[in-house]
């Protein structure tokens, strides 16, 4: 398979072909903005966490980037172009709770959904598509469940199926909305391993993340957001007491902030 490996650009603001560049993005539900005039730039081949308190606009940011929510203002560039030109290079894993898992469909059918760009509305699913979808399932350790109805799976298994669908998209930019929410420890390890594998292949991974204690282990960069942008950059530089206080305000206990920001210095 031919792939273009993105160059490792260090000067993020100047990189015209950054996997994701967001400028002045504002999204509003009713009167109150959920995301206000936010700038972020993702660096190629790195894992970035989007971190902030509940209601800080993390999910909304992802949805606006993907055109699922309509932005009031701002610009989003994906690999230097408009999203409509780059959809085939972007994969999205929504929050698991955002769909009805009683939907009458099997695991393999959900994964085949990741081939929509290739199949279109009318393309026939052929054997190599099936084999590819099965391969994606085995990468998340779910190959034995392909014929199951999705409602019969545990939360962690459902999350792995969502990840397998994103793998089937064979994208260069992966956007995941809280993939570790409500999953078991084994699933969390499996997902982290898959995401690190994507990174090793030069792909860019952006994750809405809640668990501050694993931030240093999993991610290279972090975007701190609380409706507005608080900070962005390498975890080691940005994940500081002052920035956490600015992001969470009174919502994290001072002792918590102290402990998190001091972890392994």
């Amino acid at each position: 398979m031919l792939r273009v490996v993105q160059s490792q650009a260090n000067d993020t603001t100047a990189d015209p072909a950054a996997p994701l560049s967001i400028r002045g993005l504002t999204v509003s539900y009713g009167q109150k903005p959920a995301v206000f005039s936010v700038d972020f730039t993702a660096r190629a081949g790195r894992m970035t966490a989007i971190v902030g308190p509940n209601g800080a606009g993390k999910s909304t940011l992802l949805k606006a980037v993907l055109g699922i929510e309509t932005a009031v203002a701002g610009q989003v560039r994906v690999f230097g172009a408009d999203l409509s030109m780059q959809r085939h290079r972007v994969a999205y894993v929504p929050q698991r709770a955002s769909v009805d898992w009683d939907f009458p469909t099997r695991v393999i059918d959900v994964v085949l959904g990741g081939l929509y760009r290739e199949l279109g509305l009318l393309g026939r699913v052929r054997k190599h598509h099936m084999d590819y979808a099965r391969d994606c399932l085995s990468r998340v350790g779910m190959e034995e469940f392909e014929g199951r109805q999705i409602g019969q799976l545990s939360g962690g298994q459902q999350q792995r199926v969502f990840l397998a669908r994103a793998l089937a998209q064979n994208a260069d930019l992966y956007l995941l909305d809280e993939p570790f929410a409500g999953v078991d420890a084994a699933t969390e390890r499996a997902i982290v391993a898959v995401l690190k594998g994507l990174k090793a292949e030069g792909r860019t991974v952006i994750v809405v993340h809640h668990d501050l204690s694993t931030l240093r282990d999993y991610f290279d960069d972090v975007w701190l957001i609380s409706t507005r942008r608080v900070a962005e950059g390498p975890v080691k530089e940005v994940f500081t007491e002052a920035n956490l206080r600015a992001t969470y305000g009174g919502r994290l206990a001072p002792a918590q902030i102290d402990m998190l920001s001091r972890q392994d210095g």
Partner: peptide, 22 residues
């Protein structure tokens, strides 16, 4: 018949469907 795949994907997961351009 014509919209089956799009109907199925967008009925199950509208956000994902929009993200892939259904």
């Amino acid at each position: 018949l014509v919209f089956w795949r799009g109907l199925k994907i967008s009925t199950f997961d509208e956000g994902f469907a929009r993200s892939v351009g259904v």
